[in-house]
Structures are given as C-alpha cells and as structure tokens.
C-alpha cells in the first residue's frame, strides 16, 4: 500500500486503489495539497457521522434535557431513562419481533429461491433459458410503487391483508438476487459438474453436494442485502399493514414521533438508536459483502 518505486515493472500493474505514485517518492515533506485534502475529507466524514453521533448522544440525555443547546455530541453523563420510556410508550418487543420475523423470512426465502434459480440459469440446460433470464432482469426496472396497488388487491384477494405474510410473500422472489447468484455460479468451474456426473451423480446430487456448499458466500451476500433493505423498508409496510400489532420498526418509530410530537426528543431517538443496532451489526461484520453486493452488476 505504501510507496514502492517499481510501479512500472512488467507484469505488475498497480491500480489506483493502491494510491497514485508520488512524484518524488524518496522525499517525505509536508504538502499543503495533502493537508487540505485530508481536512476536506474529515469535514465530510464529520458531517456524515455527526448526525448519527448526535442521535446517540441525545438519546442518552434525560428527556427534559434533550432540547437544551448547545447540543451534546458526547454523552458525558449517560441517562438511560429514555430507553425505559421507549419500552413503555411503544411495544418495542413486538415491533422488533415483527421486523425480525419479516426480514429473516424474506432473507432466507430469497437466499434459497435465488440460489436455486441462479443455479438453473448458470449450469442447467433447458429451452428458453436466455429469454426467461431477460424477463427476470427486466422486472428489476419496475418500481415497487407501480405494482403496489395490484399487489395490495392480490393480498386482499388471498385473504392475507394486514398479516405479516402480506409483507413476506411478495418480497421473496428476487430478480437482483437471482442475477447475483447466477453470476456467482458462473464463476464456479463447470468441470465440477462434469466430474460429478462422471462419478454418476444426478443433477440434483451435483447441486446439493458440490455447488450449494460452494455458493454459501454468494448466498450470504443475497441474505445481507435482503436484510439491510427490508429491515429499513417503509413504503410497503405503510401500505400493507393496518393494525399496530403488525407494524415493523420503522413504521412504529414514525408513529411514535407522531404521537409524541416534539414532546421528548430523547425517547424517540432512543427508539431510533435501538432500531439501528441490527444494521450496525451488519455494518461491522458484513460491510464488504454489502458493498460488493450493492455494486454487483454495475460493470465494476
């Protein structure tokens, strides 16, 4: 990562991610250019993380203190009453349970169905494969807002309105996940299938014991993306759930803010912080996978 002078050597083609070569690699001197660049980036990072830190720290002020200016960015005397309040004002266990159930089942459902469909598109031969794959890709371009009215009717017709299944079922078939898994399986050598079939394995057996275990990292990306998206989802739950017992976290928090008005910021923010915890866990352990998944298929 640090400066090497052999950039031009044949067969070694350093990319920009390793940093641009210095004009004078041997001399380490203070550069205004560097200082200003880092300063600007630090300002940008502060503006990005600042609001989140303020949220965390204000949620740790007592409800009566939470309006006070100057704002606090560091919780010197953490006060957890707001967190107690949030549990009283809001059935947060139910919200978390609903969100976890909805998000978890969607993620698992997407991982399984996308792996199966992706495998079929990558390694199985059947008539109409190319055309069918194009149709799957084309559905990615249709915004959810356009199909929401008929989906709402369909859910009603199926007798599922105002149930968690109304949120789960329509979200399981995934064009993007299928695309991702197809790319993933295409990256695995086809010789594995040839070898397995020479050993007398059926196509199912080939998938089950050769490809599926190798596809776990790809499935993890699909799962993490699904989790991140649906844990934060607001539009569909707003429409497809009616009674509070079926609310997911974002919906519950928005309704909490509505109920309290500007009464006690810290209680609302305590709820917001609680809702961020799972996302934070994903961020810490799956950031790379999340970044790879989000930018997959953009010609990177």
């Amino acid at each position: 990562m640090t400066t090497t002078t052999d950039h031009g050597l044949a067969g070694h083609s350093p990319r920009l991610s390793e940093g641009l070569p210095e004009t004078s690699p041997n001399r380490r001197r203070f550069s205004w250019n560097f200082a200003i660049r880092i300063l600007l980036l630090l300002v940008a990072a502060t503006l990005t993380l600042g609001p989140v830190l303020w949220t965390l720290s204000t949620s740790l002020r007592s409800p009566s203190e939470s309006f006070k200016l100057p704002p606090s960015f560091f919780p010197w005397n953490p006060d957890f009453t707001s967190y107690g309040e949030v549990f009283q004002q809001l059935n947060i266990f139910l919200l978390v349970l609903n969100s976890a159930l909805v998000t978890g089942l969607i993620a698992v459902g997407q991982m399984v169905t996308a792996a199966m469909a992706g495998y079929a598109f990558a390694h199985l031969k059947f008539r109409g494969r190319g055309a069918l794959f194009s149709i799957v890709l084309a559905t990615m371009m249709v915004p959810v807002q356009v199909t929401i009215v008929p989906v709402f009717m369909l859910i009603r017709g199926m007798g599922l309105s105002d149930t968690l299944l109304a949120l789960i079922l329509p979200a399981i078939p995934t064009a993007f996940g299928t695309f991702l898994m197809r790319q993933y399986f295409m990256g695995l050598p086809a010789e594995l299938a040839e070898a397995a079939s020479i050993d007398g394995a059926s196509p199912w057996r080939t998938f089950r014991s050769v490809y599926a275990p190798l596809a776990m990292p790809g499935m993890a990306i699909v799962g993490i993306l699904a989790f991140n998206f649906h844990w934060n989802e607001f539009f569909r739950p707003l429409i497809l759930t009616i009674s509070e017992q079926n609310f997911t976290l974002p919906l519950g928090l928005v309704s909490l803010q509505g109920n309290l008005g500007t009464g006690s910021i810290s209680v609302v923010l305590a709820g917001v912080v609680l809702s961020m915890i799972p996302a934070l866990v994903v961020f810490m352990f799956g950031q790379r996978a999340l970044q790879d998944g989000l930018t997959a298929g953009t010609g990177k």
Binding site: T113, M116, F126, V142, V149, P170, I172, T178, S202
Partner: peptide
C-alpha cells in the same frame, strides 16, 4: 433429461412468485 426437470423445479418458486407479484401486477 433430468437436468431439464431440475431446472424447472428450481425456477418454479422464482418464476411463479414473479409472475404473481410482479408481472400480473404490471
């Protein structure tokens, strides 16, 4: 032959789901 069968079984959940929740709604 069994590849073709397996392909359709594997595609069924995605194709049926998309047909029901995306294509028909469009």
């Amino acid at each position: 032959h069994s590849q073709r069968w397996l392909a359709w079984i594997f595609l069924a959940p995605t194709i049926l789901g998309m047909g029901l929740f995306t294509l028909i709604p469009i």
